[in-house]
Write a protein that binds this DNA or RNA. Structure first.
Lengths: 205, 205
DNA sequence: AACTATATTAATCAAATGATTAAATTGTTT
DNA sequence: AAACAATTTAATCATTTGATTAATATAGTT
């Protein structure tokens, strides 16, 4: 017996699924209504407009995407390496459950550039983090390869972690990996990525 | 004096620009007509339908994305390391000129999953390449770290190279890098990425 | 010039789409 | 039960959107 969900919830979940999968323009209000199994008018009754509904989903998706980072980046008693291990593990678990979050987010920038960037303002998570202080300190002490700037490191970490999920549909189609095998690969990467990052950070002497 | 371009060309270029930027559903035929400065009916006169026009652009975009790989992967007289250097350089140059090709391609899979994957069938570039033979041979000889499978390597290479361009709008907005600075960073990566790949490949003894 | 094929335009169509309305149903309070 | 508010529905609107048409203009051919 499926728990009795309110119409409002049904709409929101249908909208989340479709918007996250296909973006804004490709999803029609009638698609959402059908997916939710409700009358089209209820969408406007509860959420005023398609636009408003989308923004709501978008904000939640962004929060899902960046929550979990904050705590890790600001721990004062873990090493840089440990932080990368925790970040990788947290991210891969999250992406395994919501594999098209990254595509969604990068796509909002394409479809509605202003909208996302404006909502993203509040996000100074990284620049204000304890992690960054820690990183700079290690760099001054010469414990870190100074030829790799923090921005390269960030690009690398996010690229290594997030990219496989963006490319997932193509990868699976081309390689023939099924869902299980794909997840097993990602599980492997939980150990591999921090290792790779570690070697990148190692000072060249 | 702008060279006199035919209406057909104007439409195609406008379509390429807009579709590549925003995907299929978000672009309206009238947007294309306006961008091209032509009468709406000409779009259908020359290209039958929005769908046909889109497919044409898509195929060309995919070809742009994968051309250039083939030659490099099948050279019989270059080392694995050299191949990665050439791939990185070729790719970053190409992406610098067409930064939203990756977003476009990954997005087609979202909007029209069947369409892209069907067109992608012909693409067995990697699996049939001389590179793969070379790679497997090196692995058997123990010249390569056997804990990293070719698929991880591919994910890493593409992730490190392509991801920054997918994330470009967000990265620029958050970091304040201008176009010039961003390109300088990517230029740096031409040397860095092959180096990182190299250390990933190094056997752990 | 007369003819023909091609290119271009303005006007219009039909379907799709986001949104609203008024009526009907259900739920809650008195 | 009566009265009221909240929810849901079917019908409808006004725009948007992809596409077509018929008329006109342009260029090329005889």
């Amino acid at each position: 017996m499926t728990t009795d969900i309110s119409a409002e919830e049904k709409i929101k979940e249908a909208a989340r699924k479709l918007f996250t999968q296909k973006g804004y323009a490709a999803v029609k209000t009638r698609d959402i209504a059908t997916e939710a199994g409700i009358n089209l008018a209820l969408l406007n009754y509860y959420f005023r407009s398609k636009e408003k509904l989308f923004e709501m989903i978008m904000v939640e998706n962004i929060q899902n995407f960046i929550k979990g980072i904050f705590g890790i980046l600001n721990k004062e008693d873990t090493s840089i390496e440990t932080k990368f291990e925790e970040l990788t593990s947290t991210y891969i678990d999250m992406l395994a459950e919501q594999p098209n979050l990254p595509s969604f987010i990068f796509n909002v920038v394409r479809e509605k550039p202003d909208l996302l960037l404006e909502k993203l303002e509040a996000n100074s998570i990284i620049t204000n983090s304890y992690f960054l202080k820690q990183f700079k300190a290690a760099m001054e002490k010469g414990e870190i390869n100074s030829s790799i700037s923090p921005i390269h490191l960030l690009l690398n970490f996010v690229g290594l972690t997030v990219f496989p999920f963006i490319g997932k549909p193509i990868i699976q189609a081309r390689s023939g990996l099924d869902q299980k095998q794909f997840l097993a690969l990602m599980e492997e990467r939980k150990k591999l990525i921090p290792m790779w990052i570690k070697t990148m950070l190692k000072p060249t002497n």
